[in-house]
Design a binder for these strands. Structure first.
Lengths: 113, 113
DNA sequence: TTGACGCATGCCGATATAGGCATATGATGT
DNA sequence: ACATCATATGCCTATATCGGCATGCGTCAA
């Protein structure tokens, strides 16, 4: 079996850095494909393909505007990602005692040099 | 070009559902490989491979304990994910006016039936 | 040493990319 | 109808999986 499809869920869709950049850009408002492609330094077909993936997982919506097709952000799908990662919050703060003490030991060792 | 390596960054590493499950399980404390494999219904080699990916992006640490190898969570790498997704928080709350009004219109339409 | 256990790794097959390029499709204006 | 602009899509190549299976390697006990 190969890796799960990028369209299977939001986690796969946002695994691509360029798709994350597209989402960030879209926070500034709706944009036509060509403009996105240019701002991100990718080809128009490239942008279209990434937008297709984002559309299929529901992270962007598109609407026609004359000749153009404006893509807009629909960030609701990112909420599960935020919440999932947030479920580890207390672990990147308090936990990893062994590691914390280890780092502190390192600092002390340096100061004592 | 193929898709980016799962080891290229945390976003790629957590695109795999089973790897996310492993991380969740590890919130309960360190676990040997076989135990993880059993609890998640995967083969031992399968678990080892996923753990390898998680280790290479720094989401888990391992230490030897006799015959076993205990894997533990290092959730610090999930913080960027949380923050990135959090950058869209105001968009999944206020924004998407068009959509909100659309939903409200739907509700009203139902009540007026 | 021998055996058993725990885990990692190598190899294979099937699949889903991501990017480049050409081209089809659609809407607009003349 | 036609030329043009804006996008989408199809085809191709190279690559990185993910899962299954067999096997190698290190550790512990007898």
């Amino acid at each position: 079996m190969a890796r799960a499809a990028t369209t299977s869920d939001v986690f796969n869709a946002i695994a691509e850095p360029q798709r994350r950049e597209i989402l960030v850009l879209l926070r500034g408002g709706e944009r036509p494909v060509t403009e996105l492609a240019e701002e991100l330094g990718m080809t128009q077909p490239g942008a279209s393909k990434h937008l297709r993936v984002l559309r299929e997982v529901g992270l962007v919506r598109d609407r026609k505007a004359g000749k153009q097709r404006l893509y807009g952000l629909d960030a609701r799908g990112l909420r599960p990602v935020h919440e999932w990662a947030g479920g580890f919050e207390r672990f990147w703060n308090e936990s990893f005692d062994r590691l914390d003490t280890y780092v502190q030991d390192l600092k002390q060792a340096r100061q004592e040099d």
